[in-house]
Every structure is written in C-alpha cells, then in structure tokens.
C-alpha cells in the first residue's frame, strides 16, 4: 500500500525530465554542451552520462544537506558540491578513455556551469527528500542524455555516414561536413525543436477536442 503510493508519487517526478519537461527540447537549458559536443553518438552519450552522474550525486548531497545549509550561502555551497563532482567525473573519464576526454575537451569542466544542475539543486533537491531528489535528477539527466543522443545520431549519420562508429551508408557516402561543424548543431537542434513543437501542438489539439465531448 505504502509502496504503491510511493511509486505513484515518484513516477511523475522521474518521467517529467525525460519527456514533459525535457531540459533540452522543452526547457532549452544547457544549450552550450548540447550544441558543442553532440557531433557523434559516442560523444553525446559520454557527455550525457557525465552530466547525469554529476546531477545525481550533487542532487543527492544537496538534498541530504538541505536542512543545514544556511540560505544566504546556499548557491556557493551548491557550486562547491557540483564542482567537486565535476572534478571527480573529469578524473574518472580520463581514467576510462583519454580519447573521449579529449573529444569533450573543456566541456567536461564546464558541466559546473550547466544551468540544469544548479537549477535542479535550487528548484528541487533543496526542497525534497533524498529519494525524490535522486529520482528527479536521474530523470533530468537521462532526458538530457536522450536529447544529446537525438542530436548526435543525426549529426553523426549525416556528417560522417556512421552510427556509433559503424559505417551505415557504405564507402560511397558523401558526408555533409557542416553537420559535424558547429552550424550543424544549430540546424539539427532547430529541426528537433520543430518536431517537439509539432508534437506538443498536436497533443494540445487532441486534448482540446476531447474536452467538450467530456462536458457533453
């Protein structure tokens, strides 16, 4: 009984970040890493997972400490916590693969200033229990990763003719160099935003159509 009640209240917290309030496609936060490193699936995935790790760990700690952090220095404390986990992830990534670390470059360190993380710490983790904070962070982090992979897949497919490094179109494919370059990030993001806007408009229309039939 309590378990189902718990999961019922937790589920929307989790799915919100994945879809309804997706940090990239709906809230349009964290644009800098989104545009900069999403030129291949592997880079997108690494960046997404690194951000997810920082987000979950810092949300958990912020939530744990939410009652002891004085409100005047809360932002400074959050930044210290976030910066710590970013450094940890930075070292971990270097230990896992230097190639990926090189590809992501300064954007690993710049996770510190990713507004999704500070935003969730301030708006959610500091006001909710640890379990809820971690759930929310996981949802947001996975939503961010999902968005990055959406961009990375299109850009790698068109810009390099491959997916996750595997050749898709064969040797005769002419790659669209622009897709790997920064402008390609903007074009593909624009196209995805269009798709999401269209989805939202359509579901709003169907919802509006249902409404009067309920009333009648």
């Amino acid at each position: 009984m309590t378990a189902t009640g718990m999961s019922e209240s937790i589920w929307p917290v989790y799915t919100r970040g994945l879809w309804r309030e997706n940090p990239v496609f709906v809230m349009q936060l964290g644009m800098c890493p989104t545009l900069a490193v999403s030129n291949s699936v592997i880079n997108s995935l690494s960046m997404g997972l690194a951000t997810l790790a920082v987000l979950v760990a810092s949300s958990a700690l912020v939530s744990l400490m939410r009652n002891v952090i004085p409100k005047q220095v809360r932002i400074a404390t959050y930044i210290v916590i976030i910066a710590t986990f970013v450094t940890v992830v930075d070292y971990a990534l270097q230990a896992i693969s230097l190639d990926i670390h090189k590809a992501l470059g300064a954007f690993i360190q710049l996770i510190v200033v990713n507004c999704i993380i500070l935003g969730r710490a301030e708006a959610f983790a500091s006001k909710n229990s640890v379990v809820r904070a971690i759930t929310d962070a996981a949802g947001m982090g996975l939503g961010f990763t999902f968005a990055l992979i959406c961009l990375g897949a299109v850009r790698e497919l068109l810009g390099n003719g491959s997916l996750l490094g595997f050749d898709v179109f064969g040797p005769q494919f002419e790659p669209w160099a622009i897709m790997i370059l920064p402008p390609g990030g903007f074009f593909v993001l624009g196209a995805w935003l269009l798709v999401f806007a269209w989805f939202k408009e359509r579901s709003a229309r169907t919802a509006a159509r249902k409404e009067p039939s309920h009333a009648g």
Partner: peptide, 9 residues
C-alpha cells in the same frame, strides 16, 4: 557549513 563542505569535497 562552507568549510565543512569544502573539506569534504
């Protein structure tokens, strides 16, 4: 608070 967080990190 700040110094304990800093020490921890």
């Amino acid at each position: 608070t700040l110094s304990s967080v800093a020490a921890l990190s």
